[in-house]
């Protein structure tokens, strides 16, 4: 192995400098902004906690965070429940030569523009969309159902996207399981259900957790899906932040809210990382 030496710094420096200048520095600036006063439409360089106090004191800010967490939690659970069986089937029931093509197909719409993906669901769910058209034509309903522009539509749009992502991460962890474990358990007389519960499921959980965490990070910070599919009456965190930026030009408040969002993401990250570490230490 090559030894430590300082020449490495020369190679690392451009990337490091870029990250420091345009990621770390803006972040510190955002922290400053969140502690500055916003008054009479202007940012005052006066240190204050009042943005954070406002976040806690005014119910609609806190409500946005609660909405976001509820929508994201529901999305994660639904996506895992839909993706796990698919990943399992792809890993163990689809013939090997079809596996790759089946997997590629399962994640193909993942590569559509994510703006367009949300819009496409509008074509399906709106008053005159294909679901309502079919229901009306079949005489099942008299008036169109309100399927779009509510929380359900946002969750559906998210679930569609993240089912594909989770199928990938869960599939990857399923195919890594040593097939001898299954064979050994079967030789010892374990039923197929028991093999699944005692071997397959526990060994694939890290893949589920990694995928679920990625889902959480992306979904909780996404502005587009709730803006296109969601209702006008409830706001999620990213929408509330964008509102502060574009309508009120209140950058200090938007900064404080962004930092609250980041704090929540960090908490979830440390919980996931801790769980993964504890598990890897517990297993032989």
């Amino acid at each position: 192995m090559p030894g430590r030496d300082s020449r490495g710094w020369g190679y690392v420096l451009p990337a490091l400098a870029w990250t420091l200048a345009f990621f770390v520095l803006p972040f510190l600036l955002m922290a400053c902004y969140s502690l500055w006063r916003f008054d009479a439409g202007k940012v005052q360089h006066v240190w204050t906690y009042e943005n954070y106090e406002a976040f806690i004191a005014r119910p609609h800010f806190l409500q946005a965070l609660v909405n976001s967490l509820e929508v994201t939690a529901l999305t994660v659970v639904l996506s895992v429940l839909l993706a796990y069986p698919l990943a399992w089937i792809l890993a163990f029931r689809v013939p090997r030569h079809l596996q790759k093509i089946a997997l590629v197909l399962a994640v193909l719409p993942f590569w559509t523009s994510y703006l367009v993906r949300s819009y496409s669901w509008l074509l399906v769910l709106s008053d005159r969309g294909i679901v309502n058209s079919a229901l009306l034509a079949a005489g099942i309903v008299e008036t169109p159902l309100e399927l779009a522009h509510n929380r359900g539509a946002t969750v559906l749009g998210f679930t569609h996207f993240f089912t594909m992502l989770l199928t990938l991460t869960i599939f990857a962890s399923l195919v890594q399981i040593n097939p001898h474990y299954h064979a050994a358990a079967a030789d010892l007389g374990a039923s197929r259900l028991r093999i699944f519960l005692r071997i397959t499921l526990p060994l694939s959980l890290p893949g589920v957790v990694v995928g679920a965490f990625l889902t959480f990070v992306v979904a909780v910070g996404d502005f587009v899906t709730p803006q296109i599919l969601g209702g006008g009456t409830e706001l999620l965190m990213p929408q509330a932040i964008m509102l502060q930026i574009s309508r009120y030009v209140n950058l200090p408040m938007a900064s404080a809210m962004s930092l609250v969002l980041m704090a929540v993401v960090s908490l979830v990250f440390f919980a996931c990382a801790r769980w993964l570490r504890v598990r890897s230490q517990a297993s032989p």
Partner: peptide
């Protein structure tokens, strides 16, 4: 350094964009 370089992967694009906007 490795950690610092991959850190932006864990931050929402909205937050990254806003930080740059402020800058």
């Amino acid at each position: 350094i490795r950690w610092l370089l991959v850190l932006p992967l864990f931050v929402s694009y909205l937050v990254i964009g806003m930080g740059l906007l402020l800058m």
